[in-house]
Design a protein around this nucleic acid. Structure first.
Lengths: 191, 191
DNA sequence: AAAGGTGTTGAACGACTGCTCAAAATTGGG
DNA sequence: CCCAATTTTGAGCAGTCGTTCAACACCTTT
């Protein structure tokens, strides 16, 4: 039972995520990944099975990281609505220094995947639904804290949040207008 | 000066638009286009120069068609705000029978194009900005008609409209939840 | 009917794609 | 310290990509 020190799976996932996030699923070649990870095709295929298998893990890796960041930021704010606004600002405006794309990797994948890649597409949809679910939980907490009216439709508000998040990120990519985006984030939960 | 009956440029653009809209710029091969148009590579390259040249024309063709539809629908409604809502409904929910994608071709292109395709990317941004401009003109008309308060920030409202349009289309692609989308469209201009 | 320009054709090019697999290198257990 | 299981290696396969171009078909003019 030899046990050659295998490469660090997490590091590979981080590199691959950056690549896919920047160039998209189709736009990233397996050779791009080989170069970024200093791995040869055999090793990658032994570990992930295929390009789509790797991408599937990248999708989960990304979604989990987003969920962690949301939990982290919520824990740092006393008021849930403040935390949610801070999360929007964080995701949309910060990280922008070296973030691979202004867009959400899930939204980007939702856009480029076709019915031919049915499994990846349905996985993307599942992960987006889970995000919406987390938003709704946070909003329910806000209602419980009396930050929002007791009759608030949290499911509807979570949908709106998700739609705003994707829309705002697209708008930032389209225009680069950070000021406008900041103003629109500040207006959340005031209507 | 011979004048062999050339192929119908508009028909080719329509086929190519459907293809690019459905499969994306990278996901559509020149052979896909050859098959859909019954044209051989030479003809396409003589007419459009390159794949990116063709895509550039497709982008303009699509944007012009959207602008025409907006003008058409606005002309059919007495109140501008009703017309804008009807346009949202039309673009997001109708046409869905055989529309190539739930998403906006411009938003989809904005998502998949990289800095490597700088010209196509900046053209996409320009066309999106023109759309926002048209929204703002319509909203100014609504203010003039006293449908909206005189102090309405039409530039801000146009941005919000654009963001909602892109976000809602993404949401529909993510969930297929037409009912939720319809409710959210109905709420436009009531906040 | 001959001439000559215009448009069409499709085989083919070099580069790139995702992926495979026999061989070599690496390591811990005996 | 060598054996055997595991991991790494990288040349290479079969297919696809965007694109080119010499040969051909066609129509208008003379």
């Amino acid at each position: 039972m030899a046990n050659t020190a295998k490469f660090d799976r997490r590091e590979v996932l981080e590199s691959a995520t950056r690549l896919f996030w920047q160039k998209g699923y189709h736009g990233t070649s397996t050779r791009d990944i080989q170069q970024a990870t200093n791995l040869k095709p055999g090793s990658i295929y032994a570990a992930f099975g295929s390009k789509s298998g790797l991408f599937n893990e990248v999708l989960h890796f990304y979604a989990e990281s987003m969920a962690d960041q949301l939990a982290q930021i919520l824990s740092e704010h006393h008021r849930v609505t403040d935390g949610l606004r801070a999360f929007l600002r964080h995701v949309i405006l910060e990280g922008g220094d070296d973030a691979p794309s202004e867009l959400c990797l899930l939204a980007k994948s939702l856009s480029e995947l076709e019915e031919g890649e049915a499994e990846l597409l349905s996985e993307t949809r599942k992960l987006l639904a889970a995000t919406e679910q987390r938003f709704q939980q946070a909003l329910s907490q806000a209602v419980a804290n009396a930050e929002l009216p007791a009759n608030t439709d949290t499911a509807l508000a979570a949908r709106q949040l998700q739609i705003q998040l994707i829309g705002l990120r697209s708008y930032l990519r389209a225009t680069g207008n950070r000021g406008a985006v900041e103003e629109l984030i500040a207006r959340q939960f005031f209507s």
